[in-house]
């Protein structure tokens, strides 16, 4: 169907609605200083995550987990050999920091993605499904929302022993979807009243078709916005778990690094070890949060501070 539509035209001047909306949103986003800072920070962290593959190739001692400097067996201060110094057994902190960025993205984005998928699906079904389904799903969401997620995850890890990083990701995702579901539900409720949904029903569209072909594309921008906020909370929860000693010991995350500093008693002895992961956690969550705020302004015109004359001037 799409192929014919594309073949049937010789012109490319007509951009899809999605493309046009994206370009307009992008220019609004880029005008926003907060969003731009967030984006630059994220690019920086992205580069760090990519660069994390390089040091182990240079020398095996730069492996974040197992690489130990043969000459150093104490927490050494920054030097040319180790830009951010080493930990107490001679592992390179800079390499660990780079790997931590990778893990943060992995945990943040996958947990956020899973919770967005669950939240969007359940939110759409609740909003579209009508009273009974709506009540059942939303009360269920409320129940999960009021649970102290960190505490429950801690209890689970005590019960089941050490949790792997993927289990942690799943648990974070399972506790963080209700807020998404709420927002998507309210969007769906208003979309449901729009005439094009009636037109789809009159054309004979099934509920599944209406949900996925008509409602989903319209709620997707909002879901993506909420994904940025979910990323922030997932990274924080993972860091907290790791710092408290319930992280995956086979993963070098920033929270894990903090846990090692604390456990080995270097909190006040090795600032080069303590500060970088702490700063990185703050900055990456800030970056996602700033991105989210800027995206929110793009999606919700009421939040924009700039008025008409500014556009006319530019």
């Amino acid at each position: 169907m799409k192929a014919i539509a594309a073949a049937g035209t010789g012109k490319n001047e007509t951009r899809s609605f999605r493309m046009q909306a994206f370009l307009e949103g992008w220019s609004l986003f880029y005008e926003n200083i907060v969003g731009r800072i967030g984006l630059y920070l994220l690019i920086l962290f992205g580069l760090m995550a990519l660069a994390s593959y390089i040091p182990p190739l240079i020398d095996p001692m730069y492996h974040p987990m197992t690489g130990v400097d043969p000459d150093i067996s104490y927490a050494s201060a920054p030097s040319w050999r180790h830009w951010l110094g080493t930990d107490n057994i001679g592992r390179d902190i800079f390499t660990q920091l780079l790997t931590g960025a990778r893990v943060a993205f992995l945990v943040g984005i996958s947990a956020a993605f899973i919770s967005i998928v669950i939240g969007t699906l359940l939110g759409m079904i609740a909003g579209y499904g009508g009273r009974v389904l709506d009540s059942v799903l939303m009360r269920f969401a409320d129940m999960i929302m009021v649970m102290p997620s960190l505490l429950v995850i801690l209890l689970l890890s005590v019960l089941f022993g050490q949790l792997s990083i993927w289990i942690i990701v799943m648990l974070i995702a399972l506790f963080r979807w209700p807020a998404v579901a709420r927002v998507i539900r309210s969007q769906t409720l208003s979309l449901k009243q729009r005439p094009f949904i009636d037109m789809a029903r009159v054309a004979g569209a099934s509920h599944v078709r209406i949900l996925f072909r008509h409602i989903l594309p319209n709620v997707l921008p909002m879901a993506l916005l909420y994904m940025t906020f979910r990323v922030t909370s997932a990274i924080i929860v993972e860091a907290a778990l790791a710092f408290l000693g319930f992280g995956d010991p086979n993963t070098v995350s920033w929270g894990m690094m903090l846990q090692w500093v604390w456990k080995t008693g270097h909190m006040f002895q090795a600032p080069w070890w303590l500060l970088p992961p702490g700063i990185c956690i703050s900055l990456i969550t800030l970056a996602f949060y700033m991105m989210g705020r800027a995206m929110e302004e793009v999606l919700d015109p009421r939040l924009r501070k700039t008025k008409g004359p500014d556009y006319a001037a530019s």
């Binding site: 899809s16 609605f17 729009r194 005439p195 094009f196 009636d198 037109m199 789809a200 008509h214």
Partner: peptide, 8 residues
């Protein structure tokens, strides 16, 4: 209002 904005 009666045409889905995401449909060509």
């Amino acid at each position: 209002q009666s045409l889905n904005p995401y449909f060509s």
